[in-house]
């Protein structure tokens, strides 16, 4: 079970901005990485995904993510609230969460770490920087770093 999950190589990314989703996808393609990304449009949808509710009922097409990326400013449920929810569920309490935001405000950053974010990354100004960042993230969380076992 654990092995199977590890192999999902899935990044679940909550992002309401279609261009940002597009850039992310393009960057992932550019990296020719062996990783997949699934997008949800806001925090509420992300929670539905994790609970396999609604459109996400099929577990085979909606596998467990190994890394969650959250935008902060989203409709319905913003990044911080989503993060708080995730951390309150035993199943996802240890899943790595990367915050991906335009905000550079200290209070946002501090708040996210307090809520249990694993890292906070400011959205870069250029595509090439995005590629670099994504490369780093994948290398760090999927290749060099060891992820915790999911209970």
């Amino acid at each position: 079970m654990e092995e199977e999950k590890k192999k999902s190589n899935l990044i679940l990314y909550a992002e309401d901005d279609p261009e940002d989703r597009m850039f992310f996808n393009d960057a992932l393609l550019e990296l020719k990485a062996n990783h997949k990304v699934k997008f949800v449009e806001d925090g509420a949808e992300l929670i539905n995904y994790l609970h396999h509710e609604g459109d996400f009922g099929d577990k085979s097409t909606n596998p467990e993510p190994e890394l969650i990326i959250l935008d902060l400013n989203m409709p319905k449920m913003d990044g911080c609230e989503t993060l708080e929810r995730i951390r309150n569920e035993d199943k996802y309490a240890l899943t790595p969460v990367v915050i991906f935001s335009t905000s550079r405000a200290k209070e946002d950053i501090t708040k996210c770490y307090k809520l249990g974010a694993n890292t906070f990354i400011c959205k870069p100004d250029s595509f090439s920087d995005l590629v670099k960042i994504l490369d780093n993230v994948i290398e760090y969380w999927f290749e060099n770093g060891e992820l915790p076992a999911v209970e």
Partner: peptide
């Protein structure tokens, strides 16, 4: 802050 968003897009698309 909000001006940054579209600007970032312009720059990225340009790139």
């Amino acid at each position: 802050h909000d001006l940054q968003e579209p600007l970032r897009k312009i720059r990225t698309f340009g790139e």
